[in-house]
Nucleic acid binder design. Structure first.
Length: 280
DNA sequence: ATACCGACCTGTCAGC
DNA sequence: TGCTGACAGGTCGGTA
C-alpha cells in the first residue's frame, strides 16, 4: 500500500495519538520475517520507553523513544536507551494501528505494544514484507528526501546514472520514499518516458521532473492529511482518498491531456504506465 | 553499474 | 460455488 504520502499521513496520525504515551509491555509474534532486530532486543528497547515523537523518513515510520524515569533508571542503562528508535517499514500490506485493548486482534498481527494510556499499538501485516527494527543510533534513511531536495541536488543525483529514469526514481538509495505510483505520476506530469536513461535528461527536463515530483507528493500528502485519524484506526484505511492519478492504473484509458490511450509496460519488474504522446 | 528474474508472503479478483 | 492464475503500491539477492 504505502508510499511516501501514505506513510507521512500514517506517521502524523500516530504522532497525534501516541506521542507522550509510554510503552508498558510488548508482545512479539513468532514469525521471523517482519523482524529486522532480534525479538528480545525489540522488547527490551520498547518496554518502559516513552514515545517522544513519530515521524516519517522515506517510507519508514520512526518512533523516537525516551527511557521513562522509573524503568529506564532502574534497568541501569539509561544512556543506551537515550536515543533509541523504533523503525517500522510497512512493506506492501503493513499497518500500524492504535486500538483499544478490547479490539479483537486482527489476523496477521505481529506486534502489540501496550501503552500506559490503556490503548495498544499493533502491527499487522498479512504479507510480511514489512520490517520492524530498533536502533540505538539515529536513522536517516537510505537516500535523499524527495520532498525537500533542491533542484540542484536532484539533478546531480540522476545526472550520472545510466539507469532507466523510472528505475532510478524507485531506487531508494537516490531518493527514499518514491514508489511505483508517484514515479509514474511524476513522469507523466514532467512529460518524460519511463525508459529514458537518467543521464540523457536535459537540465530543463530534470527541473521539470523535480517540480512534478514535489508537486504530486505535496498534493497527495494534502489529500491524505485530511483523513489522518482514520488511517490508524483499527478499521484501517477507510476515509483515505487519493489524488486523481493521470497514469497509474489507467491502462487503455485516455490521457487526461491528449486522449491518447495510456500504455502499460514493465520497467524494472514494475508495472509502468505512461502516455506515448505526452511523454518523450 | 545495470537489467532481469525469482524469492519472500498472503489476499483479491477476473475468468472459467 | 470453487478453482486457477495473475497480480499487488516493496525490497533483496543472484546472475548475466
Amino acid at each position: 500500500m504505502p508510499e511516501l504520502p501514505e506513510v507521512e499521513t500514517i506517521a502524523n496520525g500516530l504522532h497525534k495519538r501516541v506521542a507522550g504515551d509510554r510503552i508498558d509491555s510488548v508482545w512479539v509474534g513468532n514469525k521471523k520475517e517482519p523482524l529486522k532486530s532480534k525479538p528480545a532486543e525489540i522488547v527490551r528497547t520498547l518496554e518502559g520507553a516513552a514515545i517522544e515523537r513519530v515521524h516519517r523518513v522515506g517510507k519508514h515510520i520512526v518512533f523516537h523513544l525516551h527511557p521513562s524515569n522509573d524503568r529506564g533508571a532502574a534497568s541501569g542503562r539509561p544512556e543506551s536507551h537515550k536515543n533509541s528508535q523504533f523503525i517500522v517499514h510497512l512493506g506492501m500490506t503493513g499497518r500500524m494501528l492504535v486500538a483499544t485493548a478490547e479490539t479483537e486482534t486482527a489476523k496477521h498481527t505481529h506486534l502489540i505494544a501496550k501503552l500506559a494510556s490503556g490503548r495498544e499499538l499493533r502491527f499487522v501485516d498479512p504479507r510480511r514484507f514489512g520490517r520492524l527494527e530498533v536502533r540505538q543510533t539515529g536513522f536517516s534513511g537510505p537516500g535523499s528526501e524527495p520532498t525537500t531536495i533542491t533542484q540542484e541536488e536532484f539533478a546531480r543525483l540522476f545526472h550520472k546514472s545510466s539507469a532507466f529514469i523510472k528505475a532510478a526514481l524507485l531506487n531508494q538509495k537516490f531518493l527514499h520514499g518514491v514508489g511505483n505510483i508517484y514515479a509514474d505520476e511524476s513522469l507523466i506530469r514532467a512529460g518524460i518516458r519511463p525508459r529514458r536513461r537518467a543521464n540523457t535528461l536535459t537540465t530543463a527536463e530534470l527541473k521539470k521532473l523535480h517540480a512534478a515530483l514535489q508537486q504530486v507528493l505535496k498534493e497527495a500528502i494534502a489529500a491524505g492529511g485530511s483523513s489522518v485519524s482514520d488511517y490508524v484506526d483499527a478499521d484501517g484505511e477507510k476515509g483515505y482518498f487519493q489524488i486523481k492519478h493521470r497514469a497509474y492504473g489507467r491502462e487503455g484509458k485516455p490521457c487526461l491531456k491528449c486522449k491518447t490511450p495510456i500504455k502499460k509496460i514493465v520497467v524494472g519488474g514494475r508495472g509502468t504506465h505512461y502516455c506515448p504522446n505526452c511523454q518523450r
